[in-house]
Amino acid sequence: MKISELAAVTQVPTKTIRYYEQEGLLPEAKRSANGYRYYGQQDVDTLIFIRRCRSLNIALSDIRKLVEVQKQPQGCCSVVDDIIAEQLAKIQQTQRELAKLEASLTALITCEHHKIQDCSILQRLKQAECC
Rank of each mutant, 00 (worst) to 15 (best):
T16Y: 03
T16N: 02
T16F: 02
T16A: 02
R18H: 02
R18V: 03
R18P: 01
R18E: 00
Y20K: 00
Y20G: 00
Y20E: 00
E21D: 09
E21V: 10
E21H: 07
Q22M: 06
E23R: 11
E23M: 10
E23C: 11
G24V: 14
L25Q: 03
L25I: 11
L25H: 09
L26E: 01
L26N: 02
L26I: 14
L26A: 04
P27M: 07
P27A: 10
P27D: 05
E28Q: 15
E28V: 15
A29Y: 11
A29G: 08
K30V: 14
K30Y: 14
K30I: 14
R31T: 14
R31D: 03
S32M: 05
S32R: 13
S32T: 15
A33N: 07
N34A: 13
N34F: 09
N34K: 12
N34M: 07
G35V: 12
G35W: 06
G35C: 12
Y36G: 06
Y36N: 07
Y36I: 09
Y36T: 12
R37S: 04
R37L: 05
R37V: 12
Y38P: 01
Y38M: 02
Y38V: 13
Y38D: 00
Y39V: 13
Y39C: 04
Y39M: 08
Y39H: 09
G40M: 03
G40K: 10
G40A: 06
Q41Y: 13
Q41F: 09
Q41H: 15
Q41V: 14
Q41S: 05
Q42S: 09
Q42V: 11
Q42I: 14
Q42H: 15
Q42A: 10
D43M: 03
D43R: 02
D43F: 05
D43W: 11
V44N: 00
V44H: 02
V44R: 01
V44E: 00
D45S: 04
T46V: 13
T46L: 02
T46H: 01
T46S: 05
T46Q: 01
